[in-house]
Design a protein around this nucleic acid. Structure first.
Lengths: 200, 200
DNA sequence: ACTCTACCAGTCCAAATAGACTAATAGAGG
DNA sequence: CCTCTATTAGTCTATTTGGACTGGTAGAGT
């Protein structure tokens, strides 16, 4: 009975974190959010506690001990089981091996770029380019700092990947912006009518 | 009272589709799934009907007419309102203008690449490269066909974008694979111990 | 003409999620 | 020393979601 919960996107980050050391859910939350630059986009409390419970039922993690300081809520520290470690490796392997189509907001929006009208599109894309460049420069700086400080490359490998894609996106945005400006990329008639309509 | 439902990822595809012409929910579902290569990753019935209801309450679309053929369930055709069109443009503009960090499964998995061990990582990455190349070649073929058939570039612009990113990913995967093979990218000690453990 | 399968179009509910709320403690500032 | 705020950990519920289920129609095969 493969519960849907076991498919949710925070399973991997949770297993990954527990690979490092046992922790209790609240700490996972704090830690995952702290690192959120790298993984674990949106982790919410409900989902996390729920996921931990389901993973425990599945036998991939086990409560290690319960701690209590003073009269605070008791907290349960969980550790990865052997089965959990195997599962992590299985998932890792399959997610790396098999590319899946995923959809960014931007991809969805670009499909309707026409609705912005040529000028609107140029404006918005230019701005995106600017922000991407700024953010990417910042990321590059941080990465260089980490490497200079002696962090092994394997530990920042996902930042390298993210940077590669970011650079590709910048290149694409710049080239399309330029083509729109120069008129090399023209508006099809239908959408052009659309745009005229805006001002009429 | 900004209902959460208005933030859900299928709002844009729905508004976008209605920009073309009025339709009823079932047809939206069919159509969005048909095109799903481009946008609208996972649209499910419940979400769609729910979203349409919420968008209607918000005044962004309005029931145009109710049709009934024979004794089939009555179906309601919805059309975009003026407010809806404005909202679409607003969202489009903001989603293009403002890059947001989004997380692919792959990005999440790469962070733990170390847990696969060097050979496992090389294996999995090689396979990913192979599949990406294959899929990308296929996409390129389809895009060229469309262009050759006279489809305006603006109508396939999101495919061009997706291809750019795919090529960048291939390049990255290839280069990391190669670095791992050649030993230019080495395993840090901690993870190396991890890997030895697997065989012991 | 008569089953049988595939498609049409929705409704509806169990499962999952977001995030408000609870309840306790430690330390800052007066 | 006493109040006030930030932090620690969790529980709990209203919304949302996935997708099973319903009840009908159109053709295909016999």
């Amino acid at each position: 009975m493969p519960r849907r919960a076991l498919d949710n996107p925070i399973v991997l980050p949770v297993l990954g974190l527990l690979l490092e050391q046992p922790t209790h859910p609240h700490q996972m939350l704090t830690e995952l959010r702290r690192r959120s630059d790298a993984h674990a986009a949106a982790i919410t409390r409900g989902t996390l506690y729920n996921t931990v419970a389901t993973l425990t039922e599945a036998g991939w993690l086990a409560p290690l001990e319960r701690q209590r300081s003073g009269n605070r809520p008791e907290r349960t520290v969980y550790a990865l089981t052997d089965a959990g470690r195997e599962e992590l490796v299985r998932r890792l392997d399959s997610q790396i091996r098999t590319p899946k189509r995923e959809f960014s907001q931007f991809l969805g929006a670009v499909a309707y770029l026409g609705a912005l009208g040529r000028d609107g599109a140029v404006e918005a894309l230019t701005e995106r380019g600017r922000r991407l460049r700024q953010r990417t420069a910042e990321d590059e700086r941080r990465l260089d700092e980490a490497l200079a400080a002696g962090v092994p490359r394997m530990h920042v490998i996902e930042a390298e990947y993210a940077l590669s894609l970011a650079r590709a996106e910048i290149a694409w945005v710049d080239s399309v912006t330029e083509e729109l400006r120069s008129g090399a990329l023209t508006w099809p008639t239908g959408a052009a009518r659309e745009r005229e309509g805006e001002d009429a």
